[in-house]
Nucleic acid binder design. Structure first.
Lengths: 156, 156
DNA sequence: CCCATTTATATCGTGCACGATTTAATCGCA
DNA sequence: TGCGATTAAATCGTGCACGATATAAATGGG
């Protein structure tokens, strides 16, 4: 019995659910969603809509595809979200006059004004997680590093 | 001008989108989903269905509520997933004879057999992320720590 | 023993993420 | 200049996460 290329042992003999990085990330993402929910409700937003708002507070007047690069999403996800946000009066979607394929996003006064309502949020997360700012940045960097690795490994 | 209780500066003057831990976790979760998609397709599963399978490979014959505790989900999310998985012939849902409110989950032979197909996955993640097992566990622990903190901070 | 309360699961509606496809505008190049 | 290729966004269908509510079974105090 000499078998150089052995089949690995079955999954649960290798790792437990609680050891999996993907499960930790999945659960942490759900936890962030739940934690933010009441805060977002005050702003009248969902959590993904809030991420869109942050991106637009940082850079207004951008194309849908630019926003998509920023958030790692495409128009199939963004278009419905942006339409709902337009319906809420937070932004306007306008075809680019010089290239009618593109849609430019512009915050309304209401959309810009909302930024002041959200100012307490970073402190809120620091308090909830019990991390100091330096630890938080370190952890963020490590997570971002594996995100980038996964992205480049996706589809080979 | 003496103002002890100043309003914090607006959000984008405090942090950038790319500094936010929540956004890193959100993006990493999306990245895991995308990375797993082709692998899951081979197994005929979705990523959440795969997490259910792992939980059941570890402990079969459990109640829906027990699975929910394991995964941090409730019946409103799990019931439709479990029904689809039952439709795929991976498991059976049976009312507990001794307490008809409860539903017990039992893997089928097909469901158990699938574990062997998934054995390459941990190595696959290690390779994709470029982490060694010790780093991965450390990172996992840190993420789990903040997940637990967020959970206990949710709703005050 | 009865019925209000509690517990376990299911149902329903909304929003998000995404693969696949469609629509429409622009580009490239013969 | 004409037209096939490319690009940007939108549309459609599926599955998941979740708040709110419903259903049905068990429990327990009077």
């Amino acid at each position: 019995m000499h078998d150089e290329e052995t089949t690995p042992p079955k999954l649960t003999d290798q790792v437990r659910l609680d050891d999996l990085l993907c499960f930790a990330v999945y659960s942490a993402n759900n936890a962030f969603n739940r934690f933010y929910k009441p805060v977002m409700a005050e702003l009248g937003l969902t959590y993904p809509q809030f991420l869109v708002m942050i991106a637009l507070w940082e850079a207004d007047g951008v194309r849908v595809s630019h926003l998509g690069e920023r958030l790692g999403l495409e128009s199939n996800t963004l278009t419905p979200v942006l339409k709902r946000m337009e319906g809420l009066g937070l932004l306007e979607r306008k075809r680019d006059r010089s290239d009618e394929r593109q849609v430019l996003l512009h915050l309304t006064d209401k959309g810009r004004a909302l930024e002041n309502e959200a100012s307490g949020l970073p402190a809120c997360v620091l308090e909830a997680t019990g991390l100091d700012p330096a630890e938080l940045i370190t952890l963020r960097n490590e997570i971002e590093r594996i995100r980038a690795k996964l992205e480049s490994a996706t589809g080979r």
